[in-house]
Amino acid sequence: MDRDAFIRACREGGTAIERALRELDRSFFAKLYQIGVQTLHDADAARDLVQDTFIKVWQRCATFRGDSELLPWIKAILRHGAIERLRRRNTEVPLEDDQGLTSEAALRIVNLSLEGNDTPEQAAQQRERAQAFHRGWAQFQKDDPLHASVMTWIVEDGLSNDDIAQLLERSPGATREFISQCRKRVRRYLAEWYALAWNSSETR
């Protein structure tokens, strides 16, 4: 769905919104669902989150700036909804990861992706580091999904300080503190990976 069609439907309302809702679902459901699953670690909750996002998109369509892209705006609404859900619920321990894979299966995929032309010793070191990262990151996601999710979104979409402030509804100063907390926490959870991959003096 393009932004002009979206803006037209927003102006017209009524039946145009129904048509546009179907169009939104066809255009963006898969992408948004993926973010929802990665964040909430629950396929049903992710589906519910995406549909809830589409409703909010229409409730807030007047605030869409016509000169910006539609998908990033919708993703911001989805992420805001995901944060609300994460804040509401106590973290549950997922038995499977966000792709419906067991932890061991996901790690095998990461290991396979690391295999290259390195010597056996280098490959073994890489695998060890990857395993250390995987363990620490999985624990971080489980214990602290809010900070882990925001870090993932920073990586995926290059969120700026302002983007994060808006997402979290915090002042720039409080957002900076949040980012600082992200770094502190990830260092704690990934201590094993840091020890393998870094000289500790370089990371402090």
Partner: peptide, 14 residues
């Protein structure tokens, strides 16, 4: 380095 690792650990859906 963190960015590279996080990208590697958030693969697409099957």
């Amino acid at each position: 380095a963190l960015r590279a690792q996080i990208r590697a650990h958030t693969p697409d859906l099957p």
